[in-house]
Each structure stands twice: as C-alpha cells, then as structure tokens.
Simulated assay, not measured.
Amino acid sequence: MPKPTKGPRLGGGPAHERLLLANQAAALFTHKRITTTETKAKRLRPVAERLITFAKRGDLHSRRRVLSSIGDKTVVHELFTEIAPLVAEREGGYTRITKIGNRKGDNAPMAVIELVLEPVTPKVKKSSTKTAAKPVEEAPAETTEAPAEETAQTEAPAEAEAPAETEASAEDESK
C-alpha cells in the first residue's frame, strides 16, 4: 500500500492534487521545462519520472497506464515517441530542478523543472581508471608539445622567405 504524504496536500484534496500533478506533468512533457513553485516541482519530480519510466518500456500496457493519469493522447504520444528514445540510455534522473529565487507578488520560492535530454556519459569503473589514467596523463604532454612545433614551423617559413626575397632583390639590383 502506498504511503500517504504528510502535511497539507497541493490544491486541497487528494483527487485535486492528482489532477494538478497530471496537468503539470503534461505541461512538462509538452514544453520540456516549466516554472513553478519549489514545492510543486518537488512533488512533480517522482510523478514525471515514473511516467517516463513507463514510456521507456514502450508496450501497450505502459501506454494505457500513462493515459490513465494524463488524459491527452498527443502528450502521451510525444512522451513515447520523442522523449523516451532520448532518455533510453539513462537509468534515472530524467528531471532537473533549478531554484530561481522568489516570486515578486507573494515571495513564494520558485523553481524551474526541466527534462534532462542530454546524452548520458558512462561512468568509468575504478579498476579501469588506473589503466585509463596513464593515457590521459600522456595526452596533455602531447598537446603541449604540438603548439611548440607549430610555432617553430610557422617561424621557419618566415625565415626561409626572407633570404629568398633578398636574393631576388639582389638579382634585380645587379641587372
């Protein structure tokens, strides 16, 4: 049995809170980021991440479960066809909450909740970091040498052109 939330609910009763969070999740999937209060953003995060997890499965049962909470078929279609493939490699943490200060009118703390759609970079295991650390240490040494060689090469043609010009001017003067 799910554990009930403690404290006051958003919007009054539990049914209104479910509708409010479903509407905010639909807006999040449509616009990829929304600005809301910190409390609503924190309550929306697990709802949105659960719906994205269903979308990653991609089967009919998952689609119907998402449709039961979000009634808009276009939003569900966008979630399953556009958002789910972008987060397929990610194992969680599909949303990011960024605090943006207080609202001007009532001084409520505001936040931006957005989808994390960047490709995930795989973490390197500790055992492989020792072997991977050696080539990483060599790579900066090569990069520091490369600009020095380029500067030497760029200076050398300038020096080579100078004697050629003096020889050409000497031939012109002798004629």
Rank of each mutant, 00 (worst) to 15 (best):
A158H: 07
S69M: 11
A132M: 15
E138G: 04
P135D: 09
L67Y: 00
R50V: 01
E165L: 07
S169K: 13
T121N: 08
I97T: 06
I34S: 05
P163D: 11
A111H: 04
T151G: 13
A170H: 04
G12P: 12
D106N: 13
K130T: 05
E118M: 03
I113K: 00
E118Y: 05
G93Y: 14
L19I: 10
V136N: 03
A133K: 11
A27Y: 01
I52Y: 02
A55V: 11
R45E: 12
P122A: 12
T35Y: 01
E155H: 06
E137P: 00
E78T: 09
G12L: 14
T5N: 13
I52E: 01
E155G: 02
T143H: 10
H31A: 08
A170Y: 09
E38A: 10
T30A: 12
D172T: 13
K175M: 02
R64Y: 02
K6L: 09
P109G: 00
E145S: 09
V136M: 12
M1K: 08
D172F: 11
T74H: 08
E114N: 01
F29P: 02
T95E: 03
H61W: 07
A111S: 14
E145L: 15
E118W: 03
K175E: 10
E173C: 01
S69K: 00
T35K: 15
T129M: 14
K104P: 01
H16C: 00
V112P: 00
S69Q: 07
K126H: 08
L115Q: 02
E17D: 11
H77Q: 13
P8N: 12
A148G: 05
T98G: 02
E114L: 01
L117W: 09
A170S: 09
A84E: 03
V120I: 14
E38Q: 12
E17F: 07
T143I: 15
E114G: 06
T35W: 03
K123P: 06
T30N: 09
V112T: 10
A27T: 07
G13F: 04
A27V: 00
V120T: 15
A152K: 15
A84D: 01
I100S: 09
F29A: 04
A164H: 03
G71W: 01
P46D: 09
E38D: 15
S174R: 13
H77L: 05
A27G: 10
E142S: 06
G92N: 03
A146I: 11
T74L: 10
E155M: 03
G11N: 13
G92H: 03
I52G: 04
E165Y: 07
G58S: 10
A133I: 02
S68C: 01
R64A: 07
T144K: 15
N23Y: 06
V75W: 00
E173V: 06
T37N: 14
R57Q: 15
S68V: 02
A141S: 06
R43I: 02
A156I: 11
Q24N: 08
P140F: 10
P122Y: 05
T30H: 13
E91H: 11
P147R: 12
A133F: 07
A164D: 02
A111I: 03
A25I: 11
P119N: 09
V120S: 08
K134I: 10
G12D: 10
S127Y: 03
G7C: 07
G92R: 00
A26D: 01
L115T: 06
K125R: 08
A146H: 09
N107V: 04
T144A: 15
E49T: 09
F54D: 02
T166N: 03
E165S: 13
K123Y: 01
A25Y: 01
